[in-house]
């Protein structure tokens, strides 16, 4: 068994981006930060997908995280970026914990459809809630770091640096989790749940734990997106947002904790480039690339990096 190189690779990527970020144009910083936020959501989806579960409603937690962060600023004037992210993560994790009791009983298409239903419930609520801006949503206060507000020219970079750090820690923790017996149970649950039970493990419990982790990560990503973009609206809970996350998950593959972030970045680039070239056909490009990935790279972009070792 080869030595685990993932932590080192992650650290190298972190350093490279932290350094190069100072010289990159502002719009790329924004692109990377949004990709990191989505990558966090996808990291959670990846954990679920390893069990064979596809959540068509992960936007629920993304949206909860974003609204939790936004409301914290609106109601209490909180603006510290770490506080906001913790709040988003906690709110989403809590909702995930409660809903997990129900959802952990479901598999395959039923899991997907039920998670879709709950996310659409939130969407339906938010769209009609005047106090939270209905369909328009509301603006999020500019965030601060340890009580300081960075100079305008450095805002993007500061947010990126925070995002990188958070994503780095999250990826490391998830990587360690996936190596534990409970984490490794994922593919076993996907393959044969009866056997899992007959080995003395509770598949439902394992899925519940994974579901909460995925929800917390999505909440974290949502809060990060809220502080980066500066605006939130109910669209964040709509099914097309969930579809986008699943899209990235499939694009990335479940091979490694780096994959979701890579996938999110590639997605962001495709989206930006395709949208720039032709605003009315970028979805076609996305759909086409999804088809290509499903047919030719069933294990996602990550399989390109693993090369022939996997075979």
């Amino acid at each position: 068994m080869s030595r685990d190189r993932t932590p080192r690779t992650l650290a190298l990527i972190l350093l490279a981006l932290l350094v190069s970020g100072q010289f990159l144009p502002q719009w790329t910083l924004f692109l990377v930060t949004v990709a990191l936020a989505k990558g966090l959501v996808v990291l959670g989806l990846m954990i679920l997908l390893r069990c064979g579960l596809v959540s068509f409603g992960q936007a629920l937690y993304y949206c909860i995280g974003a609204y939790a962060a936004g409301m914290l600023g609106r109601l209490f004037g909180a603006s510290d970026v770490f506080t906001l992210m913790l709040a988003g993560m906690a709110a989403a994790g809590l909702v995930g914990f409660v809903l997990g009791f129900l959802l952990a009983r479901y598999r395959s298409i039923f899991f997907g459809l039920l998670s879709l239903a709950v996310s659409m419930i939130l969407y339906g609520l938010l769209v009609k809630t005047e106090a939270l801006g209905s369909t328009d949503g509301f603006h999020v206060l500019p965030s601060t770091l340890f009580g300081l507000r960075p100079a305008d020219a450095w805002v993007r970079y500061t947010v990126l640096a925070v995002a990188l750090l958070v994503a780095f820690i999250a990826a490391l923790l998830v990587h360690r989790y996936l190596g534990t017996p409970l984490g490794r149970l994922a593919s076993a649950i996907k393959d044969n749940e009866i056997r899992v039970e007959y080995m003395g493990a509770s598949a439902r419990h394992a899925i519940h734990v994974k579901y909460v982790i995925a929800a917390a990560l999505a909440g974290l990503g949502g809060a990060l997106a809220a502080t980066t973009v500066g605006h939130i609206d109910p669209e964040m809970a709509y099914w097309t947002t969930s579809g986008e996350f699943i899209f990235i998950t499939i694009l990335a593959g479940t091979g490694n904790v780096i994959a979701p972030f890579l996938g999110a970045l590639v997605f962001g680039v495709i989206q930006t480039v395709a949208f720039g070239i032709s605003p009315n056909t970028w979805q076609m490009v996305l759909g086409g690339s999804l088809l290509v990935v499903i047919v030719f790279l069933p294990n996602g972009l990550w399989s390109l990096f693993r090369g022939r070792k996997a075979a």
């Binding site: 596809v54 395959s108 298409i109 056909t281 759909g287 088809l291 499903i294």
Partner: peptide, 19 residues
């Protein structure tokens, strides 16, 4: 393919058809 994967394929087609 798995029924969930087929769903994703139809989702990709949906995106294409919309454009």
């Amino acid at each position: 393919k798995d029924e969930v994967v087929i769903l994703l394929i139809t989702y990709a087609l949906f995106l294409i058809l919309e454009d």
